[in-house]
């Protein structure tokens, strides 16, 4: 079985410009960090455009060592919504660096992204 990093490294990434153009972000407003990451200027936030949009909160039962998988479901749900034709962005926390060198699950994992 492949590990998460092997799956991620084996997936062809699209240039971040392509992802941004799907969100109709003008190219001159995108602030790329390398080929696959970008910063988004705050001027793209528009209360007018937020109207009528759907915010879906993912939470869980009380966590156990057996695992629940909130991040897995959040990402999977966003992929599923895109598949059924709902234009969706998943919005998550950034992982902490410290726990990366310790044990799995020490921080919010971004296990399906690069």
């Amino acid at each position: 079985m492949l590990s998460d990093i092997e799956i991620a490294q084996g997936t062809a990434l699209k240039p971040i410009k392509e992802i941004a153009s799907r969100l109709r972000i003008p190219e001159d407003q995108l602030e790329p960090y390398g080929h696959y990451k970008a910063k988004l200027p705050l001027s793209l936030i528009d209360p007018e455009k937020m109207r009528g949009k759907k915010l879906i909160l993912v939470s869980a039962i009380s966590p156990t060592p057996a695992g629940e998988g909130k991040t897995t479901i959040s990402i999977g749900l966003s992929e599923g919504l895109n598949r059924i034709g709902k234009q969706t962005t998943v919005v998550l926390r950034e992982p902490s660096l410290g726990p990366v060198f310790g044990i799995k699950g020490g921080a919010p994992e971004a296990d399906m992204h690069r």
Binding site: K14, A38, T89, H113
Partner: peptide, 21 residues
């Protein structure tokens, strides 16, 4: 720059914004 949200992509090439933890 830290105040600006970060755009990345999911395994299936959909947009993901990752910001703050």
């Amino acid at each position: 720059d830290a105040i600006k949200p970060n755009l990345v992509q999911t395994l299936e090439g959909n947009p993901a914004i990752i910001h703050g933890g």
